[in-house]
Every structure is written in structure tokens, then in C-alpha cells.
């Protein structure tokens, strides 16, 4: 408290007390007002930008909606030279990539989060977090380049092996179908995206796990539980909804991942259930085709951007409301 009472009194010349009502405005009044207004405007910018994005994308994709009808959003055919501009196939393949990414990233992320929070010695935490941070810092395009040049061909061999293993099994044989020779496939994209969303999912699950009250953890341990039983009995039930939110946020990121996917997915707009075959996602097709597109195709690609935006916004809202509800419950408990 005493520290606070003697701050450097450099510029603190006694200012005249503000008059109660009326009179000339005291010095500093204008500066104060201006600063406040500038700060508010900065906050408003966020609102303006988001509104502009939605309006501009909507406005520019109108041609697509008008020419093709709203049903084109669900049509499975994308063939610009035949005048077909359906988004359906791309939406489905986008979801396929995102699901593969989540299946790979979530277990690993939960593991890392528990490793950092519960197992790693205190000293080792910072370096470990730093490693995960670095993974998050690597640009998307570098991931794409690396997978394209080093990982794709060994992956193709693995795909071939897996396919040979399961080709006679009814459904698996189709899902893990004939692999593309280059290794550029939906699966490859899913793997890259999985690596890329791991840091964010880890960060959120870590935060969620860390909110488990120490008393609960200690109570389970005191009852003789092993560390795993403590994690299962105290941490997991406490953080279930938070992990769900983390998964949804990871899903949103996975859906929007562009450049790495554009490099490794193989650019084929034909819908396939075969994860070892090339595909394309909403984001990657924009990256690959927007530059040369014109007319309805361009409008359709902007429409894809809008669909993408809508997906991420909805996912974001869901994740946030889950987190908020979890927090509120905590506040009450």
C-alpha cells in the first residue's frame, strides 16, 4: 500500500479541482474526451470489419445465388466449364478433412495438456509449452511445402499397404480405397491440418484442465487414487464441456485451414468417400482457383468464402456459449 502512495510525482502538478456545474471546461477535459472516443472507435472497428466482411462477401456472391439458385449450395457438382457451381461436394470433403484432423489432434492434444499440467516437472513446463508454441508459429505454407516434398510419397506407400489390408472389408474397403500414387489425398490434408490445429486445442484443453480445483484433485489422491484415476475421476468430469468447446474451436480452425491443404490435397472436386483419393475443400479451392476465375465462377468462389465464414461463425458461437455456460456453472459451484 505504501508503495502506491509514493509514485514518481513527476508530472503530477496539482490540477485545479473540476468545477461542479457549468463554467469553463477544466484543462484536460478535451483530451480526456477525445481519448475516450478514440478508444471506443477502436472497439467499434471490430464490429465494422465483421459487418463489412459479411456484407461484401454476400453482395459479391449474389450472382452465384441468382444464377444457380440457393440449391446450388447443396449441389454436388463443381464443373465450371459445364456451368456447374455446386458447393456440396466441397463442403463434405471439407468436413472429411476436418474430422480426420480432429481424430488425430484431439487425443494427442489432451495427452499433451495432461502431460504439461500433471506429469511434467514444473521446470520442464516452460520449454514444453515453448515447443508447442513453435509448432503453432510455423506458417501454413511451410507445412504444405514440407508435406508435399518429404512426406507425400512415403504416405502413398502407407496408404497402399492399408488399402491392401482392408480392401475386402465392406465399408473400410471403400473409405480406405485405392490410394493416389502421389500421396496427395484427403487423408494427407487431414494429417497436416491435424498437426496444425494441435497447438490451439492443446492450449484450450490445458486451460480447461487447469481450472479443476486443487481440492478435488487432492481429495481423490487422498482417497488412494492413482494419478490416472485422479485424472479420470476429478479432471475429466470437471472439464468435459470445456474439452467439447476446445474440439469445436479446433474444428473451426480445421475447416478454415487453406494453404497447406491447397498444396497437399490434390485438387479434385469430385466427391469421393475414399480418403486416400485427392479432393478439395472450400478454402483450398478458393486459393487454387480464385486467381484465374471470372464471372459466375468467381462469384461462386466468393460464395464459398461466405459459406466458410458462416461455418466458422456458427462453430465459434457454439464453442463460446459452451465455455460461458461451463464458467457460469463453476461460478455457482
Amino acid at each position: 500500500m505504501t508503495q502506491v502512495l509514493d509514485p514518481p510525482a513527476s508530472g503530477a502538478a496539482p490540477e485545479p479541482p473540476p468545477p461542479l456545474v457549468g463554467g469553463p471546461r477544466p484543462p484536460g477535459y478535451l483530451a480526456d474526451r477525445t481519448f475516450r472516443i478514440v478508444a471506443v472507435l477502436a472497439g467499434v472497428m471490430v464490429l465494422v470489419i465483421l459487418a463489412l466482411i459479411i456484407w461484401v462477401l454476400f453482395d459479391n456472391s449474389l450472382e452465384w445465388f441468382r444464377e444457380e439458385g440457393i440449391g446450388s449450395v447443396f449441389s454436388l457438382d463443381w464443373a465450371p466449364n459445364e456451368g456447374k457451381y455446386g458447393a456440396g461436394a466441397l463442403v463434405i470433403m471439407t468436413l472429411m478433412v476436418a474430422v480426420i484432423a480432429l481424430l488425430l489432434a484431439v487425443p494427442v492434444s489432451v495427452g499433451i495438456a495432461l502431460f504439461i499440467n500433471e506429469i511434467a516437472p514444473r521446470r520442464a513446463r516452460l520449454p514444453i509449452v515453448f515447443v508447442v508454441d513453435l509448432l503453432a508459429a510455423i506458417p501454413s505454407v511451410v507445412f504444405g511445402l514440407w508435406v508435399l516434398r518429404q512426406l507425400a510419397s512415403p504416405l502413398a506407400d502407407i496408404y497402399a499397404d492399408v488399402h491392401n489390408l482392408v480392401k475386402d472389408v465392406p465399408i473400410l474397403g471403400d473409405v480406405f480405397g485405392d490410394p493416389s500414387a502421389s500421396g496427395l489425398a484427403i487423408m494427407t490434408a487431414g494429417i497436416v491440418v491435424g498437426i496444425m490445429i494441435m497447438p490451439i486445442v492443446t492450449a484450450i484443453t490445458r486451460e480447461v484442465f487447469a481450472t479443476t480445483p486443487a481440492s478435488q484433485k487432492e481429495a481423490t489422491l487422498a482417497m488412494g487414487a492413482t494419478r490416472w484415476e485422479m485424472i479420470r475421476g476429478a479432471i475429466f468430469p470437471h472439464s468435459r464441456s470445456g474439452v467439447v468447446a476446445a474440439v469445436i474451436i479446433g474444428f473451426g480452425r480445421a475447416v478454415g485451414e487453406t494453404i497447406a491443404v491447397a498444396l497437399v490435397i490434390g485438387s479434385s472436386q469430385v466427391l469421393t468417400e475414399n480418403v486416400f483419393a485427392p479432393g478439395d475443400t472450400l478454402a483450398s479451392i478458393i486459393a487454387n482457383q480464385f486467381g484465374e476465375a471470372s464471372g459466375v465462377q468467381r462469384s461462386a468462389l466468393i460464395g464459398f468464402g461466405l459459406v466458410l465464414l458462416a461455418m466458422t461463425i456458427v462453430l465459434g458461437i457454439i464453442a463460446r456459449s459452451i465455455l460461458r455456460r461451463a464458467n457460469r456453472r463453476l461460478g455457482i459451484a
Binding site: L50, I53, L309, G316
Partner: peptide, 28 residues
């Protein structure tokens, strides 16, 4: 309320895919 709205929208904006931002600036 307005602060909460800005906070919320700012979080939504964080999740907007970068390609959408590119499309936005291109068209806008």
C-alpha cells in the same frame, strides 16, 4: 452490454479463416 458484444465479435473475428480475409480485402 456493448463491451461484451465487442469482446464476443472480436473472438469471432479471430476465428475467421485467413483466406476469407483475403477474399474480403480483394473484393472490398
Amino acid at each position: 452490454k456493448f463491451g461484451a458484444l465487442v469482446r464476443f465479435l472480436s473472438e469471432i473475428l479471430t476465428g475467421v479463416p485467413s483466406i476469407v480475409m483475403g477474399l474480403f480485402i480483394y473484393t472490398f
